[in-house]
Design a protein around this nucleic acid. Structure first.
Length: 206
DNA sequence: AGCCAGATTTTCT
DNA sequence: GAAAATCTGGCTA
């Protein structure tokens, strides 16, 4: 399968636009044993001035990658067990990002299964923790340039047309919970949360 | 299908 | 010291 890498100059800013735009695009994980890839079907934007964002209180050792130019990886560890992958979404020096919440596997399902057994393909990378585990993403990936078109992790163009995009409130946060900054492909079984949430229609259509 | 508790460690208050 | 951008398994219906 031929994949075209996304260029930094085509990534929309700010974060809310990028989060919506990334739906349907491809995440590529080049592993020594082979390639894994998947369609991005669910994202969340963590925007400037957002009290629920990790960059809210300024730059620290942990969140530094959020302040890189758009298109860099920010990987952090949560709940004592999981990694989560974000794409930096603000211009250099601006701390904001897009959390990649779920993938629909395209290539390398067997390789993912070696990292994380799942009963169905749709469950393999359904949720941010599962996504990172399935792809073998750890802290070492923090700060990677995802627009390089090579290396262990990069972003590529869509492999086929995407469906309609739903919008809703973000998951798992306790501040700014009302903001409609979660984006997903409506009806896709790889979208996390209860099925009602994957079908919920947002304010925006595709 | 939905609710709940437990796991487990980093980070900042 | 508390909370955290989560997941799983076990329970109730």
């Amino acid at each position: 399968m031929r994949l075209r890498a996304l260029r930094r100059d085509e990534l929309p800013v700010p974060a809310a636009r990028m989060a919506r735009w990334l739906i349907g695009k491809t995440l590529v994980r080049q592993h020594p044993a082979g390639r894994m890839s998947g369609r991005i079907v669910e994202t969340e934007a963590y925007v400037v001035g957002d009290a629920s964002g990790h960059a809210y209180r300024g730059k620290t050792k942990r969140n530094g990658s959020l302040f890189l130019e758009p298109g860099h990886a920010y990987v952090y560890f949560v709940y004592g067990c999981w990694f989560s992958l974000n794409v930096s979404a603000g211009r250099a020096g601006i701390g904001s990002g897009v959390l990649l919440r779920a993938l629909e596997p395209i290539e390398g399902l067997e390789l993912m299964a070696a990292n994380r057994p799942a009963s169905r393909p749709a469950d393999m990378a359904r949720g941010p923790g599962r996504l990172a585990t399935a792809l073998g993403i750890t802290r070492e990936f923090d700060g990677l340039d995802l627009c390089s078109g090579r290396g262990p992790l990069w972003l590529a163009d869509a492999v086929h047309k995407r469906g309609r995009i739903g919008v809703g409130p973000r998951i798992g946060i306790s501040l700014e919970t009302h903001r409609p900054l979660r984006f997903f492909e409506i009806g896709n079984p790889s979208v996390s949360g209860p099925r009602s949430r994957a079908l919920a229609r947002g304010a925006e259509a595709s």
